[in-house]
Design a protein around this nucleic acid. Structure first.
Lengths: 108, 108
DNA sequence: ACATCTCGTTAGCATTTGCTTACCGTAAGT
DNA sequence: ACTTACGGTAAGCAAATGCTAACGAGATGT
């Protein structure tokens, strides 16, 4: 059920930008904010949400906090999408072959 | 860039419910609304959004419209998540091996 | 022709959400 | 001790978002 949180997190564009910037490697909050069009507190709030979704983790490094991507949350999302995609592809092939074959139609 | 729309679509819980109900097979709007805690127009609006994101398609069947999952939108999302997951897993392994090795630290 | 069923669209409303500005605690440097 | 750098949190606000109720259009059946 954690894929739901992951989806909601990654739905916001700027939050997704924050997340994608971490793809290059661990970074501090200030470094992230410097390359984004929003303020530093905004980035901090986004990181908080990303953390509660299990998408990132953080580690103290002196005065600054370094954030990095945590594969756990992304893994669950990946699993959900993968299963969904397999099922959908199968039922879609049946669909184009015999349209409405799987539908619950009252009056065919 | 369509994965962005897919993410925003699937972030809403009820919209995700609509989408997951189509997993079983093509269904009409009324049939979908009957099993959900929201009104029929709400379902109709959700389907509209899902359609513009390439996640579903529809076909006229007499007076009613039957919706079904379109693999295109989901496929792009899948691709994006897959790539992201591979990269993240790799950099995460490097991370636990040598913490901060990939980080851009000004003062090590 | 009339009534019925199905669905999309609009207007309006309540809630949520992302952002900024301020403030406060902690860590390092002098 | 004082100052500076870094980042989390709270308050407040403007914008986006999802919902319902009401209406209109097209197909089906009698």
């Amino acid at each position: 059920m954690t894929y739901a949180k992951a989806l909601q997190c990654l739905s916001d564009p700027t939050r997704r930008q924050v997340f994608e910037r971490l793809r290059a490697g661990p970074q501090s909050v200030g470094a992230l904010a410097r390359g984004l069009p929003v303020s530093r507190p905004a980035v901090s709030q986004h990181l908080k949400v990303l953390k509660t979704a299990g998408l990132v983790s953080d580690r103290a490094e002196g005065a600054r906090r370094v954030y990095y991507i945590d594969p756990d949350g992304l893994g669950e999302l990946r699993q959900w999408v993968d299963r969904f995609w397999s099922d959908s592809l199968r039922s879609f092939k049946n669909e184009v072959a015999a349209p409405g074959a799987a539908a619950a139609r009252k009056k065919p």
